[in-house]
Design a protein around this nucleic acid. Structure first.
Lengths: 220, 220
DNA sequence: TGATATGGATGACTGTCAGTCAGTAAATGA
DNA sequence: TCATTTACTGACTGACAGTCATCCATATCA
C-alpha cells in the first residue's frame, strides 16, 4: 500500500482517537466543564493538534453528533426492512428512537445542541455539520417512507401530505422524547416529578393519541 | 412613606433597568455574544453592580425568562375565563402559545434555555429560577384545567389521567412550536425549508391530529 | 547513506470575558 | 458633626478557547 494511503488511514484513526477522548471528557463533565486542554491530554496529544482535526470546540462536539446520528440511522434503516404495515412501521420507528435515547442520553444531548446551534456561517463551512445535516435528512426520509407505505396499505389516512405529516410527527416526537429524557435524567422541573409515568409510558400514551389521530376515518 | 419603602422601590426599579439593558443587548446579539460589560454600560452602571442584583450571567438571563413566562401566563389566564368547551379551551391555549412565540421569539429562546439548564445546585438557590419554576407550574395547571373541563363536558375522552395527558400535550406542543420557530427564524436544517407550511399551518395540522386523538370514541 | 524537504505535532502565548473584592461615596441616623 | 450602614465602582484575576512560530519524524532523492 502506498504511503499516501497509510497516512490517510492514520489520520482517520487519530481523528477517532480525538473523538473518543472528547466523548469521555464531555459526556462525563458536560460540554461547558470539559476543556480542550483536558481532551487533548486524554487523547495524549497537544491542544494544537485538536485544532488540526476540528475547527473549534463546537465542531468537535458536532463530531459526536455525527457519530450518534449515524448509529441511530443504522437502527432506523433496519426497521424499514421489516414487513409490516405503515402504521406499525411508524410505531416501530418511534420506539427505536426512544430506546436509543434511553441507552444513549449523551448522544441525544448532542442532537439537541446541533439542532439549536445558531451560527449559520460556521455551519456552512463545516464538513462535520454537513454530515449531521445529511443524517437528519436520512432519518426524516425514513419517516416519510413509513407514512407513504401506510397511506398505500390503508393504515394511515392518505389525505395529508406525507412530508408535512412527517415533519409534524417528528417535531412532536422530539418534544415528548425530550420531556421523557428530562424526567429520566432528574431534571429540575418539579412538574415532571409530580406526574406519573416513566420514559416509555409517556411515549406510549403519546403514540396512541397520534396514531389514532392519523388513522383513516372509521366511517369510510 | 418610609425610607425603607422608597429604597425598596428604587431597588426594584434598578433591577428592571438592568433587565431592560440585558434584554436589549442579549436579544440583539445572542446570549454568547453579549457581554456583562456591555450590559452594564447600557444600563449606565458598573459591572459589579449587576452582580449585586443577579448571581451571575445565567441568572440574569433567567430574569428574562421570568418576564416572558409571566407575560405568557397572563394570556393563558385570560383564555381560561372564556365560556367554551374543554376541547376548545385546549385549542385556544395552543393558539395563544404559538401567537406569543411568533411575537416574542427571543422570550421563547429564554424558555428553551431555562428548560435545558442543567446545574441543579445553581437553580435551587436562585430565587429567579424558582419564579420561573412557579410560572411553568402555573402554565401547566391551565392545561390540566382545560382538559378536566373537557372531560366533564364530554368533549374529551375521560379515560386518561388529565395530568399525564397535559404533560404529553405540553411536550408535543413544545416540540412542534420549536420546529415552527426554527423554520420561521431561518434555521439551518434544510429539511425544514423543503416542507410546505408556515408557523401556524404546521401547528394547526398538529392540533387537528391531537384533538382527534383525544376526542371521545364516536361509537360510544 | 547522508542531505534535504515536507507537513504533522507542539505548547507557550494571546485575547476575551465572567466573576471578585478592596476601596469610595452617599445616605442615614444618633 | 461624626459614625455607621448601604450602594456602587472598576481594576484585577483566573480560566479557557484559539493561534502560531518552531520543532521533529519521516519520506524522498542523489
Amino acid at each position: 500500500m502506498s504511503t499516501q494511503e497509510r497516512k490517510q488511514r492514520e489520520k482517520q484513526q487519530r481523528r477517532e482517537a480525538i473523538l473518543d477522548a472528547a466523548e469521555n471528557e464531555i459526556f462525563a463533565k458536560g460540554l461547558d466543564q470539559a476543556t480542550m486542554d483536558e481532551i487533548a491530554e486524554r487523547a495524549e496529544l497537544s491542544k494544537g493538534t485538536l485544532y488540526l482535526y476540528f475547527r473549534n470546540k463546537n465542531e468537535l462536539y458536532m463530531g459526536l453528533c455525527e457519530r450518534g446520528s449515524s448509529l441511530l440511522n443504522q437502527r432506523f434503516a433496519k426497521v424499514l426492512t421489516a414487513d409490516r404495515s405503515g402504521i406499525e412501521l411508524v410505531r416501530m420507528l418511534g420506539e427505536t428512537y426512544i430506546d436509543f435515547v434511553r441507552e444513549n442520553p449523551d448522544y441525544f444531548r448532542t442532537f439537541l445542541y446541533y439542532e439549536s446551534f445558531d451560527d449559520e456561517e460556521e455551519l456552512e463551512q463545516s464538513e462535520v455539520a454537513c454530515n449531521c445535516e445529511d443524517n437528519v435528512r436520512e432519518a426524516f426520509t425514513y419517516t416519510v417512507r413509513a407514512l407513504q407505505i401506510g397511506m398505500q396499505d390503508g393504515t394511515i389516512d392518505d389525505s395529508r401530505d406525507p412530508r408535512q405529516l412527517a415533519l409534524i410527527i417528528w417535531g412532536a416526537t422530539r418534544g415528548i422524547i425530550k420531556l421523557s429524557f428530562m424526567k429520566e435524567t432528574g431534571h429540575h422541573l418539579q412538574v415532571l416529578e409530580e406526574v406519573e409515568g416513566d420514559f416509555k409510558t409517556l411515549y406510549d400514551r403519546f403514540q396512541d393519541i397520534v396514531l389514532r389521530g392519523i388513522a383513516p376515518s372509521s366511517e369510510k
